[in-house]
Amino acid sequence: MSEDALLNVRGLTKSFGSVEVIRGMDISFSLGKRHLIIGPNGAGKTTFFNLLNGQIPSSSGTIEFLGHDITRLSVRQRALLGLGRTFQIASLFQELSVWENVMIAAGAPASPLRHESALKSIAEEALDTCGLRARRDERVRTLSYGEQRRLEIALSLTTEPKLLLLDEPMAGLTRSEREMLAERIAKLSRTTSVLMIEHDLEIGLPLAEHLTVLHLGQVVASGHRDDVMRDPFVRKIYLV
C-alpha cells in the first residue's frame, strides 16, 4: 500500500439475495487525485458509492479510508471522517429555503469546526458556488432541476470533505450548466480528492487523471486515463 493511499478496497462484495452486484472488488485510489468511474448500466457504480459511504452494508470485504477501517462504520461516522457525497437524484431539503440548506451544510458536524459567526460567510460562499444568491429565500422545491443539482454540489463542497463522491453530477444539465459545473470541479482544492461517476466522457474525461472501468460488479481496468482508454477490452465493452 502506498503512502498516499486515500481509499483501499479489498475483496468487496455485495449481494441482494442471490444477485451479486459487486463481485470481489479490489481497488485503491490515491490522495488528491481526480478519479472518474465509468461502466455500462448495471455495472454497480452507484452500489459501489453506496457501499463506500455506508448507505448500505457490504456483504464481505474491507474498505479503508485514510488508514481507518471504515467497513463497519455508520454513514454519520464516515461523514465525520471526511467522506462527502452527492446523490444521483438531488437529495436536498426540499421544504427549506436555499439559505437554510446551505446553513445546514455550513454547520454540519462533518464540516471543519467553525465559529458560529463564521457560518454565515461560509454559507454566503456556498451561495456563490451554486450561483443561487438571488434566490436564497426561495424554497428548494421551486428551483429548476439544474439549480438543484448545483445546490446539491455546493452543499457537499461546504463540508470540505477529504473525499467527495460525485454521482453523475452532470446528468440532466444543459450544455452551459455542464461547462460551468466542470469548471467548478476543476477548480476544487487538491485537499479534496474526487471520485466521480459520469456518463458524459467528453466533459468527464478532461477532469480526471485516473479512470476506472467497472463491468458486472468488477474492476476491468484502472489507471491513468490514457492507458485505460487504450485497453482493448475497455474499448470493446464500453467505448466501441
Partner: peptide
C-alpha cells in the same frame, strides 16, 4: 434548522454527519 432538516431529508442529514 436541524430538526426541520431531518423532517425534510433524514438521509442527507446523516451524510452531513448530524447525529439525527
Amino acid at each position: 434548522l436541524n430538526i426541520t432538516g431531518i423532517r425534510s431529508n433524514e438521509k442527507r442529514m446523516m451524510t452531513l454527519g448530524y447525529n439525527t
